[in-house]
Design a protein around this nucleic acid. Structure first.
Length: 282
DNA sequence: ATGTCGAAATCGTTTCGA
């Protein structure tokens, strides 16, 4: 099973590129962020006519998330609510459409667009920290369910120095401050592994390049788009790649897709099954 | 550190968010 995340920065502006990428890669599931469109205006038909099942949770101009799937989307959930009853904080934070989740091939997939936070100490930064604390509570409840979990999306946080092109200058600033890094680590709770890092330990792998300051031309990027897997799934992870090429498209998103391959659904082989099922048994 | 984007309203130029 191949699962991808991509902040498309407006689905309506990027639809041609999304369709081209889907045609080339044929992932089982694509999770997108920053759709920037109200639900009634989501271009659903353009995807369903290509054989995808789609669910979305959007708003005008800002935020918005969606799932585009070759498999049935079951038990779709919107926002960080639904885990704890009468969760006022989750309800309040749910005004901004940043979370959509579903069961896909028995995997609980949670697609996130974490707040950017603007500048350390700002009102938006405080909101980001509150939001991450709420995510922590949501994941604590989710992990108790014993469903295989895949948490992915645009985290707007580079957790380590190797995830930033210039850690000396940028560490401590927005997307790299201690408080937001700690808040994300706590939410991950030592139970979720960044699948990209299980295959690639080195720096100079980015998923986002600012439109400004010629960041793409100078390859000055950040790795802020992640795919986290629970223990059970990480055992079956086969690869993880950043599709940097799309950032070089005409009128690109500022983010590139990240895609992971998992050997799933995984069927445990019985002792002697090879001999029974393989008539050539050599 | 901001030189660029995308969307919306204040409408063709400005404002906000990233």
């Amino acid at each position: 099973m191949r699962i991808a995340t991509w902040n498309v920065n407006s689905i309506r502006t990027r639809m041609r590129q999304v369709k081209d990428w889907l045609e080339e890669e044929k992932p089982d599931l694509l999770c997108i962020q920053e759709t920037k469109v109200d639900d009634p205006l989501f271009p659903e038909k353009e995807l369903t006519e290509d054989g995808y099942e789609v669910c979305f949770h959007g708003q005008k101009a800002y935020n918005g998330v969606a799932l585009i799937s070759r498999h049935p989307l079951k038990d779709v959930r919107l926002g960080l609510t639904g885990e704890l009853p009468n969760d006022e904080q989750a309800e309040q934070l749910g005004v901004q459409k940043r979370v959509i989740s579903a069961l896909v091939n028995d995997i609980r997939v949670v697609n996130l667009y974490v707040p950017n936070g603007s500048a350390v100490g700002s009102e938006k930064y405080k909101y980001k920290i509150q939001w991450l604390k709420c995510l922590n509570r949501y994941l604590r409840a989710q992990l108790k369910r014993d469903e295989p979990l895949c948490l992915l999306g645009d985290f707007n946080i580079a957790l380590e120095a190797r995830d930033i092109h210039n850690p000396e200058r940028l560490s401590g600033g927005i997307m790299a401050s201690k408080e937001e890094r700690d808040a994300l680590e706590i939410a991950l709770g030592g139970r979720l592994q960044d699948v990209f890092r299980t295959f690639e330990p080195s720096t100079d792998h980015w998923s986002w390049w600012d439109y400004r300051s010629g960041a793409w031309d100078r390859d000055k990027g950040w790795r802020i788009d992640h795919i986290y897997l629970c223990e059970e799934l990480i055992k079956h992870a086969k690869s993880c790649a950043i599709h940097k090429k799309t950032r070089g498209n005409v009128q690109p998103s500022d983010h590139a897709p990240v895609i992971a391959e998992i050997d799933w659904p995984y069927v445990e082989r019985e002792e002697g099954e090879d001999e029974i099922n393989n008539p050539f048994n050599y």
